[in-house]
Structure formats: structure tokens, C-alpha cells
């Protein structure tokens, strides 16, 4: 208390010898927006996250040029990981042209000068909101998911201290009870997206909200998945080749989304995640637009 923190508009890399010089120096053009110290700090948190799969690592989330709740966490993860040789793909709802995807992508490319792409096999960093691309990904990919609510247990507990205790003790019985109650009341488990998963048989994580369709892709994946929650100031990770089990009872199969007989009106696919236009016949289309385009062209 009584100590006033001041951020001075100057950089550390020059060696000023007077206060005027110290204050006078200002650089706003840094590679990938954030100063190096901040990026290192985020990478340290990410390393910890990779070492403890599924554990929510607190980090000093910075204020970004995009609002909190709009992918500021994913953006920080991307910017902390990006190097000059990377190529970035950004999607929102599976679409490279979604407005927020466009905005985030131009921020990344503008501040780094790296290549952008819509093709999974050309990308090294894939930042996404609400989807995993349909294409196969491998060890060369890092998938960065934007997370609005990183706490999978919030629906059953609000108190931060109690939540910390539950994770520490892997005391997840109330989560199981909520699934039991759901099944009893509704006949099915009604959790739609963000399905809770147990990672490496230890921590339950919130799966951003990606649809259940994408959940099996996380299990023993070849690629690294990083989760960034900027507003709630947490990162967590699913390293490659890690077990990811959706929470469900042995005798209640985990169900992904389905639409009877639906196919994409553009590419004819029936084995991708489809979204619909309300009230129309033949209204389905692939949520992953780049994938859909390639299906049509091959």
C-alpha cells in the first residue's frame, strides 16, 4: 500500500542516462504487440500448463486490442507462441471469414508480418473459437482455443476457494451427480458444447465450448492444444498423445451431434459438423468453410 505503480512510456532495450531520455523513449512497434517480458511470462505459464495437462494455470493476462471475451486469451497465447516462420489460420465457428476471426487474424499478421492461410496443412498455429478444424492435424500444429469460461465446475460451484479445493483433491463427485441428474431428468445428457472432459485421468477441463463432435479429436491427438482465457486469466493445455475422456457413464455412450440424413448443400458431406439455416429445406452446410471448399474442389 502507498506504493504507486507507474508505467513509463519507454523501452528497456536502450540505455538512457537521464530521466528525460528515459521518459522520452517510446516504442510501440514491437513484434507481436506484446513486449518481450510479457510474452515470456505467458510462455512460462504455457509450459507449466503443458507439464500439468488440464490444470488451469493463472497468468497475468494483458489488456489486448480486442475486448475481453472476444478471444483476448487465445490472442495472447498465439502472440506468445508466434515466430517469424509461422503461418497462422484463424477461424470462428469454423469459418475463416467470420468477422472476429478476420479481426484477430489481421492483428496477428499486422503485428508480426507472418503469413496467413485458410489451409490447415499450411498453418502452424491455428487459433479457433468454438471449433476444431475437420482436417487432420499433426505434430506440426498448435491449436489455440479461445476460452470464455475455463472453469468446468462453475455450474455446480461458484466459490473460488471451494473450486480450487475440488480440483486439488480431484473431488468431482458433484460433477458426476449433475450428469446423473441430467440423465434421470431428461433421458439423455443435455450438455451441448464445452462438454467436460477428464484429461490424463486427473483434471476435468472445460472444452471451450467446442461441440461434442470435436471432442474425440482431442483424445490422443498428435497436435498440442492450448487454451487461453484472457478475461479469467487462465491458460491450460492438452499435450499431444494425452488421454481425453468425456465424462460419461460406462453404460451411457457419449453422443456427438447428429442430424438425421443431413448433408452439406454445398459439398454433400455428411461426416462434418453441419450448421443449419432455420426453416429451410436442404438447409445444411459445413461449419468448417475451408474444409467444405476443398471437398467441392476435389
Amino acid at each position: 500500500m502507498g506504493r504507486t505503480e507507474m508505467t513509463l512510456e519507454a523501452t528497456v532495450n536502450s540505455s538512457p542516462t537521464t530521466i528525460a531520455e528515459l521518459v522520452g523513449h517510446r516504442t510501440t512497434e514491437t513484434f507481436a504487440l506484446l513486449d518481450e517480458e510479457s510474452k515470456r511470462e505467458i510462455r512460462r505459464a504455457l509450459l507449466q500448463a503443458v507439464c500439468i495437462p488440464g490444470y488451469q494455470v493463472p497468468f497475468g493476462s494483458r489488456e489486448m486490442p480486442v475486448a475481453r471475451g472476444w478471444g483476448s486469451g487465445g490472442l495472447q497465447v498465439t502472440l506468445a507462441c508466434v515466430g517469424a516462420d509461422d503461418a497462422v489460420k484463424v477461424i470462428d465457428q469454423g469459418d475463416d471469414e467470420g468477422v472476429n476471426a478476420v479481426n484477430l487474424r489481421r492483428l496477428v499478421t499486422m503485428s508480426t508480418g507472418i503469413d496467413e492461410t485458410t489451409e490447415v496443412d499450411e498453418a502452424t498455429l491455428i487459433q479457433s473459437r468454438h471449433r476444431i478444424p475437420e482436417d487432420d492435424m499433426n505434430e506440426n500444429h498448435i491449436l489455440i482455443l479461445q476460452v470464455p469460461v475455463p472453469e468446468p465446475l462453475r455450474g455446480i460451484e461458484r466459490d473460488i476457494r471451494e473450486l480450487a479445493r475440488m480440483h486439488a483433491e480431484a473431488d468431482y463427485s458433484r460433477m458426476w451427480v449433475s450428469l446423473y441428474e441430467d440423465k434421470v431428468r431428461n433421458g439423455v445428457i443435455t450438455q451441448s458444447t464445452g462438454y467436460p472432459c477428464l484429461v490424463a485421468s486427473r483434471y476435468i477441463v472445460a472444452t471451450t465450448p467446442i461441440p461434442r463432435w470435436d471432442i474425440p479429436r482431442l483424445h490422443q491427438s498428435k497436435f498440442l492444444t492450448l487454451f487461453g482465457a484472457g478475461r479469467e486469466k487462465r491458460v491450460y493445455a492438452i499435450p499431444p498423445y494425452t488421454d481425453v475422456e468425456p465424462l460419461t457413464f460406462e453404460d451411457v455412450p457419449f453422443e456427438v451431434e447428429s442430424a438425421d440424413g443431413a448433408t452439406c448443400r454445398l459439398c454433400g458431406s455428411s461426416d462434418s459438423f453441419l450448421v443449419e439455416m432455420p426453416g429451410k429445406q436442404e438447409s445444411w452446410s459445413c461449419s468448417d468453410t475451408a474444409w467444405c471448399r476443398r471437398q467441392r474442389n476435389t
Binding site: Y172, S173, R174, W176, V177, Y180, K183, E250, D251, V252
Partner: peptide, 14 residues
């Protein structure tokens, strides 16, 4: 179900 799942029960029918 709460104490049962805490003790590791994972079969809905059981």
C-alpha cells in the same frame, strides 16, 4: 449417487 461416484462408481444402471 454422490457418495457412490465419489467411491468410483461409473455405471449408471448400477
Amino acid at each position: 449417487a454422490d457418495p457412490l461416484t465419489a467411491a468410483g462408481w461409473r455405471n449408471f444402471g448400477a
